[in-house]
Amino acid sequence: MDNEVLNTEPQPTEEVRVVMPLVDILDGDDGVTIYFEVPGANSKTVDIEVKNRIMTISAASSLRRDGLPVVFKRNFRLSDGADIENITAKTQDGVLTLNIPKSERAKVHKIQVQ
């Protein structure tokens, strides 16, 4: 797994300019919300993949840098506490919002003392 982690950093290629998007991450009772800055990208150009609990976000932008089209890319490892099956995503005004619900075992369960 460590080797996989080391290999996940964005690498520039000849065809595109890979850029790491800035994020805000908010944690709530029901799950985690990640806001990605992906200017120039929209729902048609965003790709989200989860494989072996590694989530890869890739968003092709209309921006160009150094004559190359910009692709925003970033990876996250999701713990067992993330409900992968029910992740939702939307894009608006160049921001990708990802809601990752917590699985039942990761939610706070209050226990009453009798």
Partner: peptide
């Protein structure tokens, strides 16, 4: 603790590459 707290762990580099600023140039 990791399983309890970290639903999401960033696998990006420690530093913000120059490319991040390029997203707002």
């Amino acid at each position: 603790f990791r399983s309890m707290l970290d639903q999401v762990t960033d696998l990006g580099p420690e530093w913000l590459p120059e490319g991040s600023a390029a997203g707002r140039a």
